[in-house]
């Protein structure tokens, strides 16, 4: 089941098409901008929304990231993919927003965001327990530090390699690997007790693994 494809809209652009659109966008070509936005918006939004779990904030961050990208498009380095550049900007904006939120409200209250979002129809898991485990997995991901969470999301959700993630997070590759290692260790630590409590955990894991 290819859920991502149905949710994330346009197919990714090939390199030459992307560069052509960037060149046009430098000349304020609205059609090129539209094509670049449509090609990246849902992927970017999926990432930012998972970082924030707030639809309004995530949409604003995406908008801000695109505007910053177009505003500074003359400085775009064609050695990188446009998506890498865009995610780098979005990650920076996300971190700043999270810091501001933390400064205002102390610790983040993730449950507030989780409860404010409507629960979409579940497609992956068939049983109630599998659904529950899936929720626990996301809750655990949300408890990771922002760099760890970003690393996990970019690695698994966006299927990016450590090198590309390092570019986006503006950290060395070794740091990305460290984030990933610590994130997995934390997830294991958080998820193992929950799984222990569930009856038929092997079956649940099997169902979730597809």
């Amino acid at each position: 089941m290819d859920v991502k494809k149905s949710q994330e809209g346009s197919a990714p652009l090939d390199r030459s098409e992307e560069l052509r659109l960037v060149q046009k966008a430098k000349r304020q070509d609205a059609a090129a901008m539209r094509a670049l936005i449509d090609a990246h918006k849902q992927r970017l939004f999926a990432f930012v929304w998972r970082m924030h779990r707030n639809h309004h904030d995530a949409e604003e961050i995406c908008q801000d990231a695109f505007l910053k990208a177009f505003g500074a498009i003359d400085s775009f380095n064609p050695d990188y993919r446009f998506s890498t550049w865009l995610f780098t900007i979005a990650y920076r904006v996300t971190l700043n927003t999270l810091r501001k939120k933390r400064a205002v409200s102390g610790e983040m209250d993730w449950t507030r965001y989780a409860s404010s979002e409507p629960e979409p129809e579940h497609e992956l898991a068939a049983t109630e327990e599998a659904n529950r485990l899936k929720e626990i997995i996301w809750d655990s991901v949300e408890q990771l530090t922002p760099p760890q969470r970003a690393t996990v999301l970019l690695f698994y959700k966006q299927q990016m390699g450590c090198q590309e993630i390092a570019t986006i997070l503006e950290t060395p590759v070794a740091t990305v690997k460290s984030h990933l290692h610590r994130a997995r260790a934390k997830l294991k630590e958080m998820l193992s007790p929950a799984l222990e409590e569930m009856s038929g955990s092997h079956r649940i894991l099997g169902e979730l693994a597809g």
Binding site: I37, Q42, P120, S140, L153, L187
Partner: peptide, 28 residues
Amino acid sequence: ALLEVTGHVIATDSETPLLSDEFTERLV
């Protein structure tokens, strides 16, 4: 298995809401 499943859920979960329809036009 738990870690593999976690990665699989993160990679394939479709729970991301969609952006508003006017997002692109507003941005352009």
